[in-house]
Amino acid sequence: MSRPEHKAPPEIFYNEEEARKYTSNSRIQSVQAEMSLRALELLNLPEDETCFLLDIGCGSGLSGEILDEEGHIWIGLDISPSMLQIALDREIEGDLFLQDVGQGMGFRPGTFDGAISISALQWLCNADQQSHNPKARLVRFFSTLYASLRRGARAVFQFYPENDDQCELIMNAAMRCGFEGGLVVDYPNSKKAKKYYLCLFAGQIPGGQKQQIPQALGEGEEEPTDVIYSNQRFEKRKQRKSVKNRDWVLHKKEVARTRGKKDVPSDSKYTGRKRRPKF
């Protein structure tokens, strides 16, 4: 299998046409959604809280969309203008930044409650320009990411490692910058469903329990049973998908109220509507 990151730099590979093809492919849509949900689960956020999250290599928003659906507020970074343009066209909720994360980022210390990155990290291991030194770029990336996370927050990267050396290069850079954690390999025995999640902790939660590397899914299984991998999880996702309609919002508010939550916004004719008036 030829690896996209060997073909061209990301901002060139993901040109207008490729960005459009990528985003409209329904198989890609569901795989990215699935992995984003899993990454979010691995973030281990406090239940029922709206968090401030970062999506690294957010592309056209297939991963960020899941953060929207789960009710979080997020910022997405990507180096490809074409991917970002599609994200704009699709009216996703997150703030978008045109950014090469190998140059580091400038968020104030402790900004984010967590970070996800879906199918992007392997791109950082390339030297696309003569001046690029992957190791130095990874260290710059991880050190500025570490600073931008709240103490004890996690960063979870689903990625496609090229080989063991690449894994080691990435891990070493992350550990050097203060991260703890390790690799979670879901369905390790399945050719199709095997997925790598680098699960990093920006230190420990003050006063909290020591963070452990999460348990992988489907260890010891040949192939994932349909129930676990596609059906059940995909069904869940389909329910979530309706978030943008009014009924879903009303339902969610109702649930929150019956759980005894204060602060649930009152329903209005605007509930669940997309609104962008100008002034």
């Binding site: 809280e49 968090c51 401030f52 009710g71 409650d113 919002v249 602060d263 008036p277 002034f279």
Partner: peptide, 17 residues
Amino acid sequence: EIEIQETDFNPMFLRNI
């Protein structure tokens, strides 16, 4: 150039941020 884009009010997030 500034633009107002309305979105659902979320007091929980405001308290967090």
